[in-house]
Structures are given as C-alpha cells and as structure tokens.
C-alpha cells in the first residue's frame, strides 16, 4: 500500500546535513532575514518597541485562511471563493448582531455560514468530480458575494466595536503580544502538526501526488476533499471574525481579493498548485515575508503602485529561483 499510494515521495529519508540545508525553507529564511534587515535600515520606526508586534496585526487576519489553503494546494485543488465566503460570513455576523442577537451567538452563526459555504463547494466538487475546482469556486465566489450584496444592499451593518471583548480580538493585547498573533500561532501549530505528523496529513500528500493511485490504495479521496473544503470555509469565517473586529462594521465589498493573497502566500511558502508539495514552516515564513515586506515598505511610505510591482516580482522570482538552478543543470549536461 505504501508504495502504490505515492507515499514513497514523503517517506522518511535518512537525515543528512546537505539535504537539510538545501531545503526551500532556507531560501525563505534568508529572504525573511534580508527583508527585516532592509526594513530596519530603511525606517527607524521598524524595530521600535511594540512596532514589530503591531506589524503582525496588519496582515495576520488574512493568514488564517492561508492555513487551509495550503491543505487545498497539497491536494492539487484550488479555492478562489474564500474572499467571498469571508465577506458573507462577516455580513451574517453583523446582520444578526444588529437584529439583537448576542455576540457569542453571532460568532457561531458566522462560523456556521463559512462552514456551509465551504461544504457547498465540497459537495459540488465531490458529486461532480469532472468539474475543475477553479470553475466551481469561481461560480460560488460570485454567488456568495452576491448573497451578501442582496442582504445588505447599499448599507453597512456596524456598531460591532461597542462590544469591547469582540473588538479586542483584533485590537487587544496580552502584554505587548496581540491576541490575534496568539490565536494564529495556536492554529498554525495545529495545522502543521496535522499535516506532517498524522495519518490524515499523509493522505493529503498521497492524494496530491497521485489521485488515482491514492484511490486504489483505499483512501477515501472524495471524503477527504469534502473535509478540507469545508474546513477552508470555516477558516474563511475565522478570518471574517477578525476582519469584523478590525473594522467594527461590514459591507458587501470587504475581503475582496483575499483568495489570491492566500494562494500567493501558500505558493511562496513552497506549496505547488500541482499538488503533493510543500512544508508548513515554509508557509509560515512566507506569510511573514509578505506581511513584513508590505509593512516595511508602508513605513517608508512607498507608493502603492510600486508596492504592487515589488510584491508581484517577489512572488515570481522566488518561485522561479529553484528552477533557474535546474536550468543550469540541464545546460551542463547538454
């Protein structure tokens, strides 16, 4: 079973220092350090006091959805509806809060909404396995945001920041450490553990490496896909909660484009859109690389037009780097 399922790909190899240092993650570590050095030298405010911790607040709420997105990429699937799911979940939260529902219950409604949205994606994809996930989630992307627009129309639903503890989910701190950062670390550790240390995680890689082989090996491929897509919906709702706490009110146009940011983070972290590849530490590093780079460039007030170019180039060049290496190799052989 082990050989056929494609698990050989991730089977433990004998430890060697050489392969250890050649890993993708080291490239990211270098990048991460480089960016921090750059930021610190460009702006005196970068390393000041609680500045670094505050910096995490400017990007971490998007990062919650990058965690399950990594799972989806490991499977060789993709989900571009997460931004809309987050939007709809946040709108539901605020909608019911304004109807007088207690905040605790609203959060549950929000999580439920996200979970249902994710489950609908999963259901369509597993019932109609011919359909590419890109198509289905493109359809639901438009649909979910459409529902949010239909609910709110031209209004905003707000007043959320009057609930202090809810607002503190985003703005609050324990000591100088933001609450959101703590939540993120907990989630990231759980996601990383499940992916790399459990049977479930190994199955994900097996499916991503070779779906057919995995199926023949007795793995319930469709069931696992269903679980992962549903989970992604749930975490889109988690993002929605922090986003709602951040803004204190919601509109039907929030969280636009989050899906692409989450995918970019995961790909930069070493997860391939072809499936079966990627390690979790890489994702975490990538999240902080993108986030810190943006924050640093923001601190020196770089124009957002330049920022677009820099972030785009960073993504392409980093993904291309290992291939340039192999291009040289091919040339030498020839």
């Amino acid at each position: 079973m082990a050989t056929k399922s494609g698990r050989t790909i991730i089977a433990d190899q004998p430890f060697s220092w050489k392969t250890f240092f050649l890993k993708w993650e080291w490239l990211l570590v270098i990048l991460f350090l480089g960016i921090n050095v750059m930021n610190a030298s460009l702006s005196e405010y970068y390393l000041s006091g609680a500045g670094l911790f505050n910096a995490t607040n400017s990007f971490l709420e998007k990062a919650f959805v990058a965690l399950p997105m990594a799972y989806i990429l490991v499977l060789g699937d993709i989900d571009i509806s997460v931004g809309s799911t987050a939007c709809l979940s946040a709108v539901m939260l605020a909608y019911f809060y304004n109807l007088g529902v207690p905040m605790g219950l609203c959060i549950i409604i929000c999580l439920l909404t996200g979970t249902i949205c994710g489950a609908i994606n999963g259901l369509i994809l597993t019932k109609f396995t011919e359909l590419a996930p890109m198509i289905v989630t493109l359809g639901t992307q438009i649909l979910y945001r459409g529902i949010a627009e239909a609910m709110l129309g031209d209004e905003a639903r707000g007043g959320l920041s009057s609930v202090k503890w809810f607002s503190n989910l985003y703005w609050g701190k324990i000591g100088i450490v933001p609450i959101m950062l703590i939540c993120f670390i907990v989630c990231a550790v759980i996601f990383g553990f499940v992916l790399h240390k459990t049977f479930f995680g190994r199955r994900l890689y097996a499916i991503g490496a070779n779906k057919l082989a995995a199926e023949y090996a007795g793995i319930k491929v469709q069931k696992i896909r269903m679980i992962v897509f549903t989970l992604t919906g749930t975490f889109a709702a988690v993002t929605a909660i922090f986003l709602a706490a951040r803004m204190g009110s919601t509109r039907a146009d929030i969280a636009t484009g989050y899906e692409l940011e989450a995918i970019a983070m995961a790909v930069l972290g070493g997860f391939s859109t072809d499936g079966g590849k990627g390690k979790f530490p890489g994702l975490i590093l990538a999240i902080f690389i993108v986030g810190m780079l943006r924050y640093g460039l923001g601190l020196v007030n770089m124009a957002s037009q330049f920022m677009l170019v820099v972030i785009g180039a960073l993504l392409i060049i980093t993904v291309m780097l290992p291939n340039i290496k192999s291009m040289f190799k091919v040339k030498k052989k020839a």
Binding site: G312, I316, V319
Partner: peptide
C-alpha cells in the same frame, strides 16, 4: 522558468497593474 501559470500570472497581474499606474 517553470513557474505554474496561475502563480506567474497572479504575479504579473500585480506587476502590470502597478506599471500601468
């Protein structure tokens, strides 16, 4: 460069838009 199409074009989506401005 063997960059997956969706990643490459995602990057260029940002780059070309920035350059347009």
């Amino acid at each position: 460069g063997k960059v997956p199409p969706i990643v490459c074009t995602l990057g260029f989506m940002n780059i070309y838009r920035g350059l347009t401005y």
